[in-house]
Design a protein around this nucleic acid. Structure first.
Lengths: 211, 211
DNA sequence: TGAAATTAATTAAACAGTGATTTAAATCTT
DNA sequence: AAGATTTAAATCACTGTTTAATTAATTTCA
């Protein structure tokens, strides 16, 4: 085996590799099920490095949140700031923005959906604080304004609409790897999903069709 | 502490209590994270009883599936058999049937959503086989038929519609316990959610509004 | 009918495996 | 020589499972 000791060469990326490996395991197995041994192996180091760099398992999660998750939240918030009040534009902007973000951060949907449902509050605490509290609150406000302006059926509770919208957008994306097991086919591409979601949403948002 | 030995009185319900406790923990912590000690404590027995009655952790999961999950699947299938081809009726029937089922089995949404996303395949294998393969497949068929009959926009992929419908229906229900943390209010009752989901769905399903 | 034997149900404790964390040593850089 | 980085091994806590002991219920049979 390799002997202990400081290796030669530049090793400043060990920390970054640990963060990436942790995020990978969080998204694939859930925060609770992710083991330091697995994370360390993915990063190519020993589990003791986690204590050395971060101080422990909980501190590693904190670091992932600070340095990997919060930038994505900021990215989403910047996108939402460009949306107007029109209901159709809101739906379209939200879905396409979500898709663009997921394109660059493929672990986002499964991480989000999994942790929102998890009983282990650590990561959800953050998600609720930074994502659910800021982004949906802002969107819900826009929806309420759209209702006042008559663009949106006033009977719909904007908060419920918000929760459903998140589920409608993220759940199919997160479940995508299972499609072939559910439907015996893998040819359900993300473009089709986006078209479909947009169509379903845009219709649901229009106010002049009361069933 | 309590001494070992056969207790007095009728104890035929120990097994049932273990099944209920297991389902509770599966739904709340996930199948992998659920520990026998926790389950046994909830049931008011020692973990050794699990081995005694079922043979082990895996066998306990099997028993929960056989005696708690499959009856619910059968219940849902019976409900689906009463649905026709009309898109509006399908949406209404699916959602209201889902709500009625969830009313009696409150653990269903979080269990379903959590396990569909889980990397631990044991329970998902069953869910895909018995729920995802039978119910959505049947519904997707109905949707395709409705498309041929002109009741449903033929541009929408019925499989995608199916996945989104599950997300739209179950995700908000599963996220319900978090609402008050997201929106600072607990007054989002299940009736409002059903109204909202139905309205959004029924509009999305209508075929004459192409955006 | 009633005592003895047997079977069923239950527990505490022991065991083996795995996880996170700490420690001490080893190696490299400055 | 001093400080930083990394490892193997030790440690402690927890998990699923097994074991031996213990008590209640049931059966046997004189």
């Amino acid at each position: 085996m390799r002997r202990p000791g400081r290796p030669s060469g530049d090793r400043r990326d060990q920390r970054e590799r640990l963060l990436d490996a942790a995020l990978f395991h969080y998204a694939n197995h859930g925060v609770t099920a992710a083991s330091l041994r697995g994370i360390a192996e993915t990063a190519g180091v020993t589990p003791a490095m986690v204590s050395y760099y971060f101080g422990g398992k909980a501190a590693l999660l904190n670091a992932v949140v600070e340095e990997r998750l919060l930038p994505v939240v900021a990215e989403l918030r910047r996108h939402l700031d460009t949306l107007g009040d029109d209901a159709g534009a809101l739906a379209k902007g939200f879905v396409s923005g979500m898709h663009a973000t997921v394109e660059r951060h493929p672990w986002l949907p499964s991480l989000w959906v999994r942790e929102v449902l998890s009983e282990d509050g650590t990561l959800r605490e953050l998600l609720v604080t930074h994502i659910a509290e800021q982004i949906p609150r802002r969107l819900a406000k826009s929806f309420a304004r759209a209702q006042r302006h008559g663009h949106l059926n006033p009977e719909l509770d904007p908060r419920l609409l918000m929760v459903s919208l998140i589920g409608l957008t993220l759940f199919p994306l997160a479940a995508a790897p299972l499609w072939h097991r559910i439907f015996d086919s893998e040819d359900l591409d993300s473009a089709a999903l986006e078209r479909h979601t947009l169509a379903l949403l845009a219709r649901g948002l229009e106010t002049d069709h009361v069933p």
